[in-house]
Simulated assay, not measured.
Amino acid sequence: MPAPPERTALYRLYDADDQLLYIGISAFPKTRFIEHAGDKNWWHHVTRKDVQWLDDRESALTAENDAITSERPLYNGYHHLGRGWPGKAHKYDDAEDQRRVRAGIEATLERGGYAPGTPLYGSDVGREFNASSSTSRAALAKLAEEGRLAKWGHHFKAPTPGGSAPPSDVPAVSGVRTDPWFTRVLRVECDAAHSRTRRHDRIQDTSFGCT
């Protein structure tokens, strides 16, 4: 039995001047907007979203193609149906946004606005400085390359004085990781070990470097 047609949304994104920025389709537009927030460096200019629901995806594809061709949104590129669309899109230059975000991060660091080791995510920094997540990640990456921020997996964090040594209440153990995430785990394990010691009146468990 064939699957029922999937209702699909045709959406338009506008800026504060009512300039049409982008047209797209999705069965889950809210999820798509979250994705756009992460990968479209112009996303912070979006102030209005118009959503129109159509009965099935094929109808939405046709409507999307017609709308892109006739309305010429600023940031749409080549559309895969390709009828009459020239295949070019305006490329948003986020260099100034990156400089602005970078300056904001540096100023916050200088006044101690980020506690040492604070994780800095592109989405959070973007909201803080009114920029897209991708632009903010680029600014964070450049600061990390220059040693102003620390790398934390695929993310970044505010620098910790003296490097990544564990807090004073968590003893360093030779050969054991000392990054902030692990030291939190270590502290939990130590607390659990101390609890076991009290319950069973045994010698203190030192397997995780607890004292």
Rank of each mutant, 00 (worst) to 15 (best):
E35H: 13
A16K: 14
Q98C: 04
H45R: 15
E58L: 06
G117E: 11
R196Q: 15
R57C: 00
R7G: 04
N76C: 04
P73L: 02
T206S: 01
Y14M: 08
D124L: 00
V46I: 14
I34C: 02
A3M: 09
G126N: 06
H194F: 08
Y75D: 06
G162Q: 13
W181H: 08
V185I: 09
R48F: 06
D55R: 11
Y78G: 13
A131P: 05
D201F: 02
L20P: 06
D56C: 13
S136K: 05
Q204P: 00
V173H: 10
K49R: 15
D191I: 13
H36Y: 11
A172M: 14
D17Q: 12
A141W: 12
W43E: 07
H45S: 09
V46L: 05
H154C: 05
G175A: 07
A3I: 08
S164W: 12
A63R: 11
S70T: 15
S70D: 13
R198I: 10
E145S: 11
S59E: 14
S70A: 14
K88F: 14
A37V: 00
A165R: 10
R99M: 10
K142Q: 13
V51H: 02
V170H: 02
H90V: 09
G113D: 06
S123N: 11
T47R: 15
D50G: 03
E110S: 14
P171T: 07
Y121W: 05
R196I: 02
R102A: 09
R102H: 14
V125P: 02
T31V: 11
A144L: 06
A3W: 08
F156G: 03
A115T: 12
R187M: 08
V173M: 13
F28Y: 06
E71L: 15
A193E: 09
T31S: 11
G122M: 04
R100L: 03
R32T: 10
T31Y: 03
D201S: 14
S59H: 12
D94Q: 01
E35W: 04
R48C: 05
D94E: 14
A141Q: 10
T47Q: 15
A139W: 03
F182V: 00
G82A: 07
V176A: 11
R32L: 02
A192F: 10
Q204T: 07
T31R: 11
A9C: 05
S59T: 15
W181D: 12
L21H: 09
R198W: 05
P4F: 08
G162W: 09
H45N: 11
I25R: 14
T47A: 09
G209S: 05
A150P: 00
T62N: 15
G87W: 10
F182I: 06
S134P: 02
T47P: 04
H45P: 01
R72D: 00
Y92W: 15
C190T: 07
G163Y: 08
R102W: 11
A138C: 12
I68G: 05
E6C: 01
